[in-house]
């Protein structure tokens, strides 16, 4: 029995030593965002802990690591979607939409947060490999344009303006090199669907662990009912809208006559 326990501890020790010397535990303050009639955007807290017992054990008689040893990157994104980017041109004195391209598989919401600017602790190659940061998002376009770069920049600019794309460095706080937290903000126009919150733990310029937590965003209650009704039964919804209007109009006219 005792032998078995010792064996297990040894196994655990070597396993963590050989594979990852750390483990990462993360969670969100909420696993679901509900869009209700009072929804005006949302804030979530992503938090977690780095367990580094194994590494400490080895380093106990070596030089102790000082300062910011780990870096954390948090990426939250919605399901990939297709977007149209349109460009206005001046035609006969007025500004009209002319050229457009369609991009496939870009997130409708994308937020990246980190302890420091990515370039300070991660090489470009690794950023590309893990698709970290807006510039490393896949940008597969349809439609012709000899000016793809400006469309790409315009996409980021537009989405940032709407609060749907966020790039923040320095807003992941690490405490005692163990605990970390990041505040995530979501605007009221966020798309619904299944989101993913990925946490990357970086040491010595290498991503050593990633961990992801799902996040569900959905319309709830009356908002969901109305939206579904409008999209699943358009003719009935149209008739309902007309009846509501007729009733409201006649009723308010009646009340107004009584009052005045």
């Amino acid at each position: 029995m005792v032998l078995r326990i010792i064996g297990f501890v040894m196994l655990l020790f070597f396993a963590t030593l050989s594979a990852n010397s750390e483990t990462l535990v993360t969670d969100l303050s909420q696993n679901e965002i509900e869009i209700t009639s009072q929804f005006a955007g949302s804030e979530l807290l992503l938090f977690g802990a780095i367990e580094r017992y194994a590494r400490d054990a080895i380093q106990s008689d070596e030089i102790s690591v000082q300062g910011l040893d780990y870096d954390i990157i948090v990426v939250v994104r919605s399901e990939p979607t297709d977007l149209i980017i349109r460009k206005k041109e001046n035609k006969a004195g007025i500004w009209v939409n002319s050229e457009n391209i369609t991009v496939r598989g870009v997130p409708g919401y994308y937020a990246i947060a980190s302890t420091r600017p990515l370039d300070d602790f991660l090489s470009k190659d690794i950023q590309v490999e893990y698709g970290l940061g807006l510039n490393n998002l896949s940008f597969i376009s349809e439609g012709e344009s000899n000016d793809l770069q400006s469309y790409k920049e315009a996409l980021f600019r537009n989405m940032m303006e709407k609060g749907l794309y966020l790039e923040n460095s320095g807003n992941v706080e690490v405490k005692n090199e163990i605990l970390f937290r990041a505040n995530l903000t979501f605007p009221s126009n966020m798309p619904v669907g299944n989101y993913k919150a990925d946490v990357y733990l970086v040491r010595d310029g290498e991503v050593i662990i990633t961990h992801n937590t799902p996040l569900k965003v959905d319309k709830q209650g009356i908002e969901r009912v109305i939206y579904n009704f409008a999209h699943e039964y358009p003719p009935l919804y149209g008739i309902m809208a007309i009846l509501v209007a007729l009733f409201a109009g006649l009723f308010s006219g009646f009340v107004a006559r009584k009052v005045s």
Binding site: T81, I84, I85, R86, E89, S150, L155
Partner: peptide
């Protein structure tokens, strides 16, 4: 008048 933002993004 020339708009500040010439590009617009919408869902397909």
């Amino acid at each position: 008048v020339e708009p500040d933002e010439l590009f617009s993004v919408s869902a397909v």
